[in-house]
Design a protein around this nucleic acid. Structure first.
Lengths: 210, 210
DNA sequence: TTTTTTCTGTTGCAAAACTAACTTATTATG
DNA sequence: CATAATAAGTTAGTTTTGCAACAGAAAAAA
């Protein structure tokens, strides 16, 4: 999920002299950042996993996006409003680069290869982000819990090129990601197993159809 | 909804000599385009209204996005799959520019101001698109029909800077846009009226709270 | 203008989803 | 290792949503 862009070539010679970036590490459970209006932060996840989550006034949690290595996130992608408190939480130990978008998008005058490559590639990275978000919307506009589960599995399966795969999220998190009630999702999963459409052993899903 | 970018300055002196663009007009109800893999079309709506819609195998219709003047759409923003037939339908008479993204993003060698301005501004246009899509996701991740309705009204109200506004969609279309059953939505609207939270006279909504 | 079509508003009933609670696994942590 | 915390799995009861059908209003077409 999120933008995927192979930064590996740059990570190892990462040496942004320009002071326009902050690099921080977090341990599991820590808050990486909270989205703030008008700051326009853009963050790059160098390793680990983080979730962008929203809690509503009833305490319901929504996992808006789930980010892995080399994904991009930050308030630059959001219209931040009062009704809309967005928090990025570390799901595992992780390291994150923090830029301010207006500084990042300019070419860096201090000959910083990482930064300059990034700003050049920004348009294609954003286009990738758009397609990811449209896929997310397609997932959320599935009509019922079953269709959401099946589409989610199908997406992972296609990405991995395999009919069998490990879930990258816990089932509790998956429910919050699909925006459905956890027990309703469990019930539907059980039915899918009983009907022989899906096999599930622990965290491993196998699609049995087609 | 969609990207908003003031093209007015360019529309009137629109004279793309570069043959990289097609301009077509449609009447209400016509199909503007169907998303096709690997073509990477990018379209600009010059006037009128169009909907990006998806029909599932049960005949359910989802309005994925609703576009107005100067909005952008096209398959360049999508991972087009077999499960995912996307159609753009004209909701009113409209005129559309059709580009192929790879041609558009290059500067135009034939001194075409419109085209060149567009390709320069592409990054900011895409960033706008991302924030629009994230707002769409926030709407779709509301927990129930009531919350979707209220958030939708709140978005329109904020955009118009008024507590009272005309709905830009029919109620039938609004249900397909919010991804809820029409009669369930009507029931909820009725309750909102009875509870004095919202007033509704024909197509005009007035928010009575706060 | 008349006719046809689409949209709005409403309802009873059925199906799906949510809530809350609890037990059993599994995974962290002292 | 023992204990605590979190996650998985399940269920009964309740609420919400969807379905289907219909009548009246409004809009479009003839």
């Amino acid at each position: 999920m999120g933008i995927s862009f192979d930064l590996n070539n740059f990570i190892y010679d990462f040496s942004c002299n320009c002071k326009k970036v902050q690099k921080k590490s977090f341990s599991k459970g820590q808050t990486v950042t909270t989205y703030i209006k008008n700051r326009n932060q853009l963050c790059i996840l160098l390793n680990g996993h983080v979730d962008l989550v929203r809690y509503d006034s009833n305490g319901n949690r929504t996992i808006v996006e789930h980010f892995s290595k080399n994904d991009f996130f930050g308030e630059v992608f959001y219209k931040v409003t009062v009704n809309n408190e967005l928090i990025v939480e570390a799901k595992s130990a992780c390291t994150v680069l923090f830029y301010i978008y207006d500084e990042l998008k300019e070419q860096c005058d201090t000959d910083c290869k990482f930064h300059n490559t990034l700003s050049e590639r920004l348009p294609e990275l954003m286009l990738d982000k758009i397609t990811e978000l449209n896929t997310r919307i397609e997932l959320l506009t599935q009509r019922n819990t079953r269709d959401k589960i099946l589409m989610y599995f199908s997406l992972i399966s296609t990405r991995k090129q395999k009919k069998s795969f490990e879930l990258p999220l816990s089932l509790t998190d998956l429910a919050d990601y699909l925006n459905v009630n956890r027990s309703a999702m469990m019930r539907e999963l059980k039915l899918l197993k009983e009907e022989g459409l899906v096999d599930k052993i622990g965290n491993r899903i196998t699609l049995l159809y087609k």
